[in-house]
Design a protein around this nucleic acid. Structure first.
Length: 448
DNA sequence: TCCTCTAGCACTTTTGAATCGT
DNA sequence: AACGATTCAAAAGTGCTAGAGG
C-alpha cells in the first residue's frame, strides 16, 4: 500500500489519516465538534489506513480523546481565548472499533472508519459515547493493539498514533461561522444548508441579513484557508499553543502524524506534563515518552535492544525534520519495535495470541532499561497489572455471554480512580459479540 | 446582560424490509 | 427456492434558531 507522507512508519505498522486535506482545512480554521446529550458524530470523522500489520494476527483498534491542555476556552468575537482552567475531567471512555478484534488482513483490506464514534457532554451517558467538556480542546488518539481479545490487551504492544490536524474544540453550538460553512460544504447531511442547495423553502424563509451573511462567508473561508493558518485563534494562550502546534502543523504538513508508543492507560501519568504549561511546555515531549505493556518476546526483545538509548528530544525531531517530515520520523524508526525477520511458513508465537505466549516469554525487567519503568515491566507478570480494563458488564450491564473468573484471576492492578474501582470485575471471554464493547467504556484511566 | 446549552424544526443520507425479476 | 436488484418508508444525522437557564 502506498502511504503518503502523512503516514508514520512505526516498526512495521503504518497509519495514515484519510481525508487529510479536509482535516487540514478544518484545522487551519480551528476545528469545532458539536457535542450533544444524545451524542453527535464527528465531522470530519476519523478514518485511517493501516498497513504493516501481521495479516493473520488479531488486532484491536481503539480511539480515545485526550485533552490538549488544561484550559477552558471561549469564543470572543473572531477568536478563541482562554477562559480559565479546565473543568474536572469527565469519565474517560474509549471507543472500540466494532470490528475488533480483527485480523490484520481485515484492517489492511480497506480504510478503517470510526464513523459511528459519538461525542457527548452528558456525563451520565449510558450509551458509551465519549464524554467531553464543551469549550475544551481535545484530540483523538488511535491505538492499535495486537490481541485476540480485550483481556489479552494488557500484555500486548500498544501502538498509538495521533494526528495533529484532528485536534478540535468541543462545542454545543458552532462558534466560528467559517467552521459552520466548512461543515455545511462537506457534510452530506448538511446539504440542505448549502447556498446552492435544493432547499428553496429554507432559503425563502431566511431573513435578508442572514442571507447576506451567508453569502459572504464562502469567499471568506476560501481566503482564510489560503492565507491564514489559524485565523480563529487568539494570540493568547491558545495561540501560543498553536504556535507550538503551528510548528507541528508545519511538520505535520510534511509528516502529519505524531506517534506515541505507550499504553493508553498511561495517560494519567502524562497528564501532568500535558497540562502544566500550554504555552511554555512542549506537549510534543510526551509523545516521545514510551511505555509498553509487555508483549510477546519477538517484539519486546528486539524493541528493548533497539531502545537502549533515550527517546529523542523534540528538538532533535525538529531538526531532523528540516527536510521531509517523513525522514524525521523514519529516523526514529530504530527506536521503535521492529518485528524480526521470520519464516512466514512457520507459525509465530504471537500469531497464536499474545494472551498465550505473552507472559511466559517476557524478558526480564532489565531488558527494558531505558525504555520502560519497572512498574510497566512488571506488568507482564500474570496477575500483576499496570493497567486495568473496565468491564462494561460488571456492574451496570447484564453479563450476557460474559462469565468466568472474577477478580481473583484478574486482580485490580493498582489504585484506581474511585469511579471504576468497584466495577472493575473482569470476566472470562467466550468470543461473543465483541462489537458491543464499543458501546461501553473500556479503560479506567483518566484523561488528565 | 452575556454566555452556554437545549429542543424542535426542516432537510438530507442511510438503513433495512418488502417486493419483484431472473 | 435462492439470489440479486429495486423501491420505499423509517431511522438517523445535519445545522438553524428561539428560548431557557445560570
Amino acid at each position: 500500500m502506498a502511504a503518503g507522507p502523512d503516514a508514520y512508519l512505526q516498526g512495521n505498522i503504518r497509519m495514515t489519516l484519510e481525508d487529510l486535506d479536509l482535516w487540514k482545512s478544518f484545522h487551519q480554521t480551528g476545528t469545532e465538534m458539536i457535542i450533544t446529550k444524545p451524542g453527535r458524530r464527528m465531522f470530519p470523522h476519523c478514518k485511517v489506513i493501516l498497513s504493516g500489520l501481521i495479516p493473520c494476527a488479531k488486532y484491536i483498534l481503539l480511539v480515545d480523546m485526550v485533552p490538549e491542555d488544561g484550559f477552558r476556552y471561549k469564543w470572543n468575537k473572531d477568536k478563541w481565548e482562554v477562559a480559565g482552567k479546565a473543568e474536572p475531567q469527565p469519565p474517560c471512555r474509549t471507543y472500540l472499533h466494532p470490528d475488533s478484534p480483527g485480523l490484520g488482513s481485515h484492517w489492511m483490506k480497506q480504510s478503517v472508519s470510526f464513523l459511528k464514534l459519538k461525542l457527548t457532554n452528558n456525563t451520565l451517558d449510558q450509551h458509551g459515547h465519549i464524554i467531553l467538556h464543551s469549550m475544551h480542546r481535545y484530540h483523538p488518539r488511535f491505538h492499535v493493539i495486537q490481541a485476540d481479545d480485550l483481556f489479552s490487551v494488557r500484555w500486548s504492544v500498544f501502538q498509538t498514533f495521533t494526528f495533529p490536524e484532528t485536534s478540535f474544540i468541543a462545542v454545543t453550538a458552532y462558534q466560528n461561522t467559517k467552521i459552520t460553512r466548512l461543515k455545511i460544504d462537506h457534510n452530506p447531511f448538511a446539504k440542505g444548508f448549502r447556498d446552492e442547495g435544493t432547499s428553496k423553502k429554507r432559503q425563502a424563509n431566511k431573513s435578508p441579513d442572514c442571507f447576506e451573511k451567508r453569502a459572504k462567508e464562502p469567499s471568506v473561508v476560501a481566503e482564510d484557508s489560503k492565507e491564514d493558518s489559524s485565523p480563529g485563534f487568539c494570540q493568547s494562550s491558545y495561540d501560543s499553543y498553536d504556535r507550538d502546534e503551528g510548528d507541528l502543523a508545519k511538520r505535520k504538513d510534511e509528516k502529519s502524524v505524531k506517534e506515541e508508543r505507550y499504553s493508553p492507560w498511561d495517560a494519567e501519568r502524562q497528564q501532568g506534563v500535558r497540562t502544566d504549561s500550554p504555552a511554555g511546555g512542549d506537549t510534543r515531549e510526551i509523545y516521545n515518552t514510551e511505555q509498553l505493556v509487555p508483549t510477546p518476546a519477538s517484539y519486546q526483545l528486539y524493541r528493548a535492544h533497539e531502545n537502549g538509548k533515550s527517546p529523542s528530544p523534540p528538538s532533535s525531531i525538529a531538526s531532523n525534520n528540516s527536510g521531509s517530515g517523513r525522514s524525521c520520523f523514519e529516523s526514529r524508526v530504530p527506536d521503535i519495535a521492529t518485528v524480526p525477520e521470520h519464516d512466514p511458513s512457520k507459525p509465530r508465537t504471537h500469531e497464536a495470541g499474545p494472551s498465550h505466549c505473552g507472559p511466559q516469554h517476557l524478558p526480564g525487567p532489565q531488558d527494558y532499561s531505558g525504555v520502560l519503568n519497572m512498574t510497566m515491566a512488571q506488568a507482564g507478570k500474570p496477575g500483576i497489572l499496570s493497567h486495568h480494563i473496565y468491564s462494561p458488564y460488571s456492574a451496570e450491564q447484564p453479563l450476557g455471554q460474559w462469565s468466568g473468573p472474577g477478580p481473583a484471576q484478574y486482580p485490580p492492578p493498582h489504585p484506581l480512580t474511585a469511579d471504576y474501582t468497584t466495577q472493575a470485575v473482569h470476566h472470562g471471554y467466550h468470543h461473543g459479540n465483541v462489537a458491543e464493547w464499543s458501546q461501553y467504556p473500556l479503560f479506567s484511566y483518566s484523561c488528565w
